[in-house]
Design a protein around this nucleic acid. Structure first.
Lengths: 351, 351
DNA sequence: AGGTACTGTGGGAGCGCTCCCACAAGTGAT
DNA sequence: ATCACTTGTGGGAGCGCTCCCACAGTACCT
């Protein structure tokens, strides 16, 4: 935490020019050293570095941004109110992953909430001013205009999850299909006969893929898929309750529930208890997300975990590539710009 | 979310110069309009604004920062690991307050974690580069070198809480003394005879003030202050447990506990239960912070609430003043640079 | 000896603003 | 009519960098 350099109380910071004079070299050479260009002799480099240390030189970001037309900053945009951001571990895990990957770079991360209309307008203004080199977009709904704005402004962006099969933006998703399959295969292995599914909002692509996984797992096990056993919730606890009641009414003989989120599983659990069904003895229960709720439920909930931190890391890496690639106007194409990371079943006592 | 302007696919953004040409005025005049100077005639202003709209002009932040030597950004520095940031509602409330106050301005808020050594070095670098106009410092310990670095770099800063009675930095604190008093007065009014206190770490100034409030409330009620009834915890649950055990050993006849934080109160509660003491019948319990824990305890915990969101708002306002005041080199002195907001007792069933 | 290539270096031009001085035009007192 | 302000405006200078062209020096061919 010590500030080096002989700089007096003047408050004026040394400039490149002054470092150059001190080191007895030209401005360009100092710039090269600062930016790690290989085209500098060892001796010169050492001299410049000494001058930098003596003067306590720190580059002026604004000048650099102006001259080089880049900001060395990227934004993590959360199109949600702050409340949700703090409530859901998803975001903090994501941030952790991004932050870890970021610490190897000189990039600065900005956190931007765009929950309200007002905030969104602000964001649009912000992006139009090109104040960041790239954008990480988490939790985007299918009809969000943000991605279009981004490509209109030609700002590199990476999205978490996909909006559809043919997502155009570079994206990092987890294997929702595989996660759904794993949940159902686990229930099948446990000997469950009538496996129901409370799906999430189907305009969320990942939720749809989980349903696909559910279907295929049953089909591959030689079971008929009964559409009556699938019901759509809305990712909320109340939605989980409603869905569970309906399922119990439709099929009193059900012996397993695969919920598309832990929160919905928690709602379902309440209804099951009220109905006198024991977990896991009468009805096995599996959730999705492996959130804190899952661990704290009674009994602890079996759930599918997404590698969110890894996803964050991967998103950042993709974005940095994307930013670097904007130099030559070549290399379009979707090679490797869509990443899918594996999901994993975490077995606990509810199944 | 619509981008106005006829700007083609070139990607080049219009400059001040181009706006000036379009509006048939000089560069200076456009600058004046953009920056809201009053020294512009109505007609000219309208013409410029039209040109700005037509071209979809957005000022280049980097150029402005370079020329004007300001960044229009401030940082909220959290000298804690991210985990704590997400775990404690203190930070999210603070952020909410700051964010609210910020939305009236053109300022950009940066969130910076400085929990690890590595992050701190990064931060030092960042500040040395003067990449922000000011800093909001939350949760600072008495021996933290950060405030000194800030004043060395002559960066305006506002601190949450005070490090001592004669805090030099502008600060916003809550009335910890009054909060402590209120808690004890409440217990006295309930008829408690032997009121104990589990204090927080005494190197945290606020914790000390709560103890002062505790003492004075008893004294003013004509009670002797028995130092045996005060014990120091460390703000953790485990610390609360240890302190409670010790207090029970010292004074089995105690009938009230005022804990310096909700978390410590939770620890104390466990020990009380194990000892067979009922709350509030045998022992009344009061916490501090009014955090989520307080509401979820059984019985719900009476606690002292600090207006954290308001504190955030106030901090930002102080900081903006501070930044504005850096123009004339006058106006030293501590007038109004130390703000103390009232704390409030929230009565629940634990007392 | 001349050519060709590469390496390392200096410094001009320019990024898009703000600041400020100069000055025209208008207003009112002398 | 003259002087002294005031108001509105134009544009030069300069903020501290990066980019790139020019060029000196060295090395290795013909």
């Amino acid at each position: 935490m010590v500030v080096h350099g002989a700089r007096g109380r003047s408050g004026r910071r040394p400039t490149l020019e002054e470092v150059a004079a001190r080191a007895g070299v030209g401005r360009g050479t100092v710039s090269r050293v600062i930016n790690g260009s290989p085209r500098v002799s060892e001796a010169t480099r050492a001299a410049v570095e000494a001058a930098v240390a003596e003067l306590g030189y720190v580059p002026n970001t604004a000048a650099r941004a102006l001259a080089a037309n880049r900001t060395d900053a990227i934004a993590l945009v959360v199109p949600e109110p702050e409340t949700r951001f703090f409530a859901e571990p998803y975001f903090s895990d994501m941030l952790k992953g991004v932050g870890a990957a970021l610490s190897d770079t000189e990039m600065q991360l900005l956190l931007i909430f765009a929950g309200s209309d007002r905030e969104r307008r602000r964001l649009a203004q912000y992006l139009a001013a090109h104040r960041v080199d790239g954008v990480l977009l988490v939790s985007v709904h299918a009809d969000d205009p943000l991605p279009d704005l981004l490509s209109q402004l030609e700002i590199p962006a990476v999205i978490s999850g996909r909006r559809s099969v043919d997502e155009t933006l570079p994206s990092v998703d987890s294997d929702n299909y595989g996660g759904g399959r794993a949940a159902v295969e686990h229930l099948l292995a446990r000997g469950c006969r009538t496996i129901t599914h409370i799906a999430g909002r189907l305009d969320v692509f990942g939720a749809q893929r989980r349903v696909d996984g559910y279907r295929d797992a049953l089909r591959d096990a030689g079971r008929e898929v009964d559409e009556e056993l699938i019901i759509t919730g809305d990712f909320t606890e109340e939605g989980g309750r409603r869905a569970m009641k309906e399922l119990l009414a439709r099929r009193p003989d059900l012996d397993a529930v695969f919920a598309g989120s832990d929160v919905m599983a928690a709602g379902a659990r309440q209804v099951l208890r009220e109905a006198g069904r024991r977990t896991p003895d009468d009805v096995a229960l599996v959730g999705y997300d492996d959130s804190a709720i899952a661990r704290h439920m009674d009994p602890p909930l079996t759930s599918v975990r997404q590698p969110i931190e890894d996803m964050g890391r991967a998103m950042l890496e993709l974005l940095l590539d994307e930013i670097a690639d904007r130099r030559p106007a070549v290399s379009r194409g979707l090679e490797k710009r869509q990443l899918v990371l594996p999901a994993m079943l975490v077995e606990r006592d509810s199944s």
